[in-house]
């Protein structure tokens, strides 16, 4: 299934710690998507990156819980950054 890239969307691994974003699409694999869904991440979910050291796994907060994701997995999540002021909820 081709993912149509929105103009501003980028991979989760390119977000800096503290940045908030909305998940746009999750790439590759039915099983992977289902597992992420169970952990609270589906397209449309708001996430905050807590840890991203430029290498190794990342930590994100989603739906009030925190999650460690392998870098390979995080790279497959397309997000749209949100400026810290004007987010709706």
């Amino acid at each position: 299934m081709a993912v149509v890239k929105k103009p501003d969307s980028m991979s989760l691994v390119s977000l800096a710690p503290g940045q908030r974003a909305r998940v746009e699409a999750i790439c590759c694999g039915h099983g992977f998507r289902m597992r992420l869904a169970a952990l609270g991440i589906i397209p449309g979910t708001l996430i905050t990156v807590l840890r991203n050291a430029g290498a190794g796994p990342v930590i994100v907060e989603a739906r009030g819980g925190r999650l460690a994701l392998g870098r390979g997995q995080a790279a497959r999540i397309e997000v749209q950054p949100i400026s810290s002021e004007g987010e709706g909820g």
Partner: peptide, 9 residues
């Protein structure tokens, strides 16, 4: 293949 790492903290 490497398995995905996803873990709740």
């Amino acid at each position: 293949e490497e398995a995905p790492f996803m873990m709740e903290l």
